[in-house]
Every structure is written in structure tokens, then in C-alpha cells.
Simulated assay, not measured.
Amino acid sequence: MYSNSNETGVYIIRCKINNFIYIGSASGIKGFRKRATFHRWTLNHGKHHSPILQNHFNKYGIDAFTFEIALVCPSEKCLDFEQVFLDANGVGYHNKSYNINPSAICLYPGKRNGVSKLKGRKASVETRQRISIALTGIKRSEEVKRIASEARIGIKRSPEAVAKTAAKLRGIKRPPGLMENLRKFNVDNPLSPEIRKKIAQTATEANSKDYIVTSPDGEDIDVKNLSAFCRHHNLTSTHMIDCAKGRYLSHAGWQCRYAHVTKEEQEIAIAALKLKFGIKEYIVTTPTGAEITVENLYEFCIKEGLSFSAIWSVWNGKKRHYKGWMCHLVDEPEEIRIKRLALRGKAKDYIVTTPQGEELAVTNIFKFSKETGLDHSGLIRVARGKRSHYKGYLCRYA
């Protein structure tokens, strides 16, 4: 199925095993070469528009097919001659033809010369009945509906698309009696109380202007004018609204919810967001032994002047500590916990001698240095024998 000819005309794809043929025409740039490449690519990827040809290709392989030039003609005459070949041979399986369209106007997906690919093709009554039976009773699951809904959030049609739709609808009048039929349908099929309550709740959420803002200290503040509140506290109002809508967890440590939303409902929404985006919680241990629960580890490291990559290595079990700081996940995987505990098992004990001659057993050299106002690196260099003392302190490994 190869051709090196750039001429235009009618071609035939023939199966050497069963003598089925496919009739087509090449009228564009690079002629037969481009059409042979197109058919070869679509068949190799299982995307050919002729299911019979695709099935035989999958069964016999590419070596069973040949690409033959049947007629060379000008490009403007290609469709006419192709139609002659189609009329002479016929289409469909009973005619040993891979062609499924009796018209030469369009033989591949998309549009050709401005004519739809469906021209000349009409599904039989049996085919339409099979499709109807197959689709009857099929309903999309709640998960599929949720994914489709989330995919459409924030998508807006372009002005060109809106103008195009308006131009199509302009001048179209409603059929006589349509509004009367709709009114009668609504009277005969009233909305259930549950649906009415849901519509009212949605409208309330859309029109609500009252918010409850939770400060980083945990204080709840009733807010009537969110924009003015954000300007006063140097916050971004759009981000706070996104927090109220359940799109963000917080903004600069502040949380926000609509006034009609309870604290429990907000906590449930935050837990769902954490689960959706895989947000982790960390427990960071300071050199003094205090434990801090952290959600945004990167911002915490910037605030405390720590290296994020080093702290990340600590909680991931690659380092025992970083300047006395330790870190682990709240819900820590078992393999990381084992790695981290194995590293902590290698911790060294020291014996520090004060300038007054008192010997102290130290298990955490960083905590000891913090409490005594010393630099832990100086004591460690003394223990390694690189210094004789550090500010009168002596240190050795236990």
C-alpha cells in the first residue's frame, strides 16, 4: 500500500486474498502518495472509516493489500470518474467492496467540498431499531455526571460562537400553540417539593451576600461587604469567594463561607477538597521538641527560613533531620515510616563537658545547643576531633 506518484486520479486498494476492492480518488496536493499514506496511517491506528476494510486489515495484515492507480486525470474530474467506478462496481459487502458510501462526494470523515460525510448514506430501519434498543434504558451514572459537570465548570463560549448561534436563531418563530402546550405540560407535571427546595437553595446561594470569614487565629467574623473587608485586610476578594464556593481551602490563612453554610458543612467540603486534590497534612517537630500541624509545607518553610527540599527529604525518610527540625506525614505510609525510624535509630549520643567540668549525657545535640545558646556545628566539630573545644565546652561521642 505505497505510492510515490504525485499525480491525481482514481485509485483502487485491492485485497490479494479475497479480491475485495476499495475505490477512491486523489485530487489534492501530492495526489496518490498522500492518499496511500492516509489509508495506511488510519488502518495502522485502527481508525479507518470503512469497518470492512479495517477488519480485513486486522486479519490479513498490510502485505495482503495493494495500492493500484486505475486512472490518471485532472483533479477537477476526479470525483466524476470516481463516481463512474463506484456505479460500475457497487458498494457493500455483497459487491466485494470496501466502500460504504455510494456517493463520491465524500468518502472519508469530515467534510469534502463543503458537503457532509453523511450524504448518500442512510441507516436501514433494522439498523435504527437496533441502535434504539441498545440505547433504551441506559442512564449515565452519578460519577459520569459529576465528571461531565466538573469538566464544564468555567467554560464559556467565545463571542464568535454566541454570534453564530444568534444568527441561526434570528428570525425563527415558535410554532403556533407551543407556549400553550408548555404551560399545559407544566400544570400537569408539577415540580416535586424536593426539586423546588433545591432550586430555592441554589437561588439563595447565588444571591447571598452575607459571609462568615474565619481568621488565621480561628475567630469567626460576620461580613456584609466582602470587597471592603478584603481591602481592609489586604486580601483578594475573588479568592475569598472561591473559598466560599468550595474551590479553595483557604486564602492567606483565611477561610470563608456563606452565612447559610454551617461550620460542619464547611469542614466536610474542605475534607472533600483535600481528598480530591491529594492535599497532605504534616507534623513538624521543632528543635525544642514542639509539634506543629502544617498543611502547606512550602509556605511554612519560607516563613521559618528553612530549606523546603531538606524538610521534604526528612519526611520522605531520606534524612534524619534538618538543623534539628523533623517532619512526618499525619497519615504516613508504612514504608516511609520504616525508613524514617531506621534513620532515627542511627542517632548518636554525646557527652558534653561544660566549662565548669560537669559532664552531661546528651541525646539531642540540637536541642541542647538551642537551650544553651550554642552552635551545634561547633560541638559536633569538637566531637569529631576537628577542634579542641568550643567556647570552653568539650564534646565526645558516648
Rank of each mutant, 00 (worst) to 15 (best):
I153L: 10
Y350V: 09
R121W: 03
V314P: 02
E371L: 10
W315R: 08
D80S: 15
K339D: 10
V362H: 05
T37Y: 12
T136E: 13
S141I: 04
L79G: 13
K370R: 10
A161W: 00
T127E: 14
L135V: 11
T165F: 01
A70K: 11
K139R: 13
D217I: 07
K34L: 14
V84N: 06
G385C: 01
K391C: 06
T262E: 14
S103E: 11
F20L: 00
G110C: 08
D242F: 02
F185C: 02
C230G: 08
V115D: 08
P51Q: 06
F308N: 02
D80M: 13
L343Y: 03
L394E: 03
R174Y: 13
K276T: 08
L306T: 00
P190A: 07
P159L: 01
T202E: 14
E332W: 04
L394Q: 10
D349L: 04
F85Y: 12
R14H: 03
A290F: 06
T293V: 14
S227Y: 14
Q201H: 13
T286L: 03
I336C: 02
H56R: 08
K386E: 15
T204L: 15
F57Q: 07
A151T: 09
K323D: 12
G92D: 00
A148M: 07
I279H: 04
R14V: 05
N189D: 02
I29F: 12
R35T: 06
L249F: 01
I133L: 14
E281W: 10
A167P: 01
N19V: 02
D242H: 03
K263T: 14
F366L: 00
Y11F: 05
N55Q: 15
F81V: 10
S132F: 11
Y322V: 05
I311R: 00
S208E: 10
Y390H: 06
E160M: 03
V187G: 01
P159Y: 04
P159M: 03
L178A: 09
K348T: 15
S50R: 06
I302D: 00
T372I: 00
T262Y: 11
S377M: 07
R174E: 14
